[in-house]
Nucleic acid binder design. Structure first.
Length: 324
DNA sequence: CACCAGGTGTCTT
DNA sequence: AAGACACATGGT
């Protein structure tokens, strides 16, 4: 099945910059690949694999252009609903901007981040592994690692525009070896083939391989990721923090980019720097206090405020003067 | 070679 | 509650 349709600008509220949204390093999933003017990725719609190609002229009134391909018949409305969800098109950006404008310290982020939306997970388990892998890592590197995980352990789907891989199930990753061979002792000839080894280390996840295996086991046995979406925010936070490799920052990333909990306020190095500068007279404040501050001050907009401050802090050049 | 990248786990004060 | 340190990997 191949179908083409549009999402008109009146079907969502406010600006939309798809390239910024996809490329801003949100830990729900790696950036979608680019093919001509389209961004494309394999997503799951009603348990069917569906290739989506999507293009939009940033912050314009042009409709969003979508092409979807799948083996099974899928209702267009279902695909549209998934896309609306993944790209945060159900979020009311004009209302967010009213909120940001109400605080002079946040107001400058609006122009800088115009059309930036939450890039939500297609697959919650994927967002858990992405968030774990993003810790103490660069955006580029965790994107590469997740794509390797998909190629080596996911299911393959071929389309005319390329080959795509689903994100592997918890069962598959729980049983994936950390090391396929002992790199110290194996034959030098074998070592040359390392890139093709089917183990977690060859996916370049580094020391996080143990966390990924253990997290996969827990998701299989004791933590129902679907249930977490129905919990209140603090209960969900406590639950997700039981997973190894998931601390406060990674946990909030999972809750925000994976589930869409608007209250989540992931405190990383950039948020720590810019919130200290804007709200604490550049004094050092502990991360737990910073998190509490964000949740209490920004409420249900904490997540979006974090997203906008993060992008602003990294890209505006404002922070160059006070790294540390 | 040192230091950093969207921190976390573990072990000490 | 807060500080010190290791941790894979790749880039500058």
């Amino acid at each position: 099945m191949k179908t083409r349709f549009k999402i008109e600008s009146h079907e969502f509220r406010g600006a939309f910059d798809i390239e910024l949204t996809i490329g801003s390093g949100q830990t729900s999933q790696p950036a979608w690949s680019k093919n001509g003017k389209y961004f494309q990725e394999l997503i799951s719609v009603d348990n069917n694999a569906c290739l989506v190609k999507i293009a939009h002229k940033p912050n314009s009134d042009d409709p969003i252009d979508i092409i979807a391909e799948s083996k099974e018949q899928i209702a267009e409305e279902q695909i549209k609903a998934r896309i609306m969800e993944i790209f945060g098109l159900n979020d009311d950006l004009p209302k967010l901007y009213d909120f940001l404008r109400s605080d002079p310290k946040l107001e400058p982020t609006i122009d800088f981040c115009k059309g930036l939306r939450l890039f939500k997970a297609d697959n919650i388990f994927e967002s858990v592994v992405c968030s774990i892998t993003s810790a103490h890592n660069s955006i580029r590197q965790w994107n590469k690692a997740i794509n390797l995980l998909k190629e080596k352990f996911g299911d393959e789907y071929k389309f005319s525009s390329g080959t795509f891989y689903s994100f592997p199930s918890p069962q598959v990753l729980a049983n994936a070896p950390e090391h396929e061979f002992d790199e110290e002792e194996c034959d030098p000839e074998l070592l040359k083939t390392r890139a093709s080894w089917k183990d977690l280390r060859s996916c370049r996840v580094g020391y996080r391989s143990k966390y990924i295996i253990k997290a996969s086991e827990m998701v299989q046995n004791e933590i129902d990721l679907q249930k977490v979406s129905r919990m209140d925010y603090e209960t969900a936070f406590d639950t997700i923090l039981k997973i190894p490799g998931v601390g406060p920052k990674v946990g909030d990333c999972i809750l925000l980019y994976g589930y869409g909990f608007g209250k989540a306020f992931p405190v990383d190095i950039w948020i720590s720097r810019i919130v200290a500068k804007l709200y604490f007279d550049e004094k050092n404040v502990s991360n737990p206090k910073m998190r509490k501050f964000g949740i209490e001050r920004f409420g249900n907009y904490a997540g979006y405020t974090q997203l906008y401050l993060f992008h602003y802090a990294r890209k505006s050049g404002l922070m160059k003067t006070l790294k540390k």
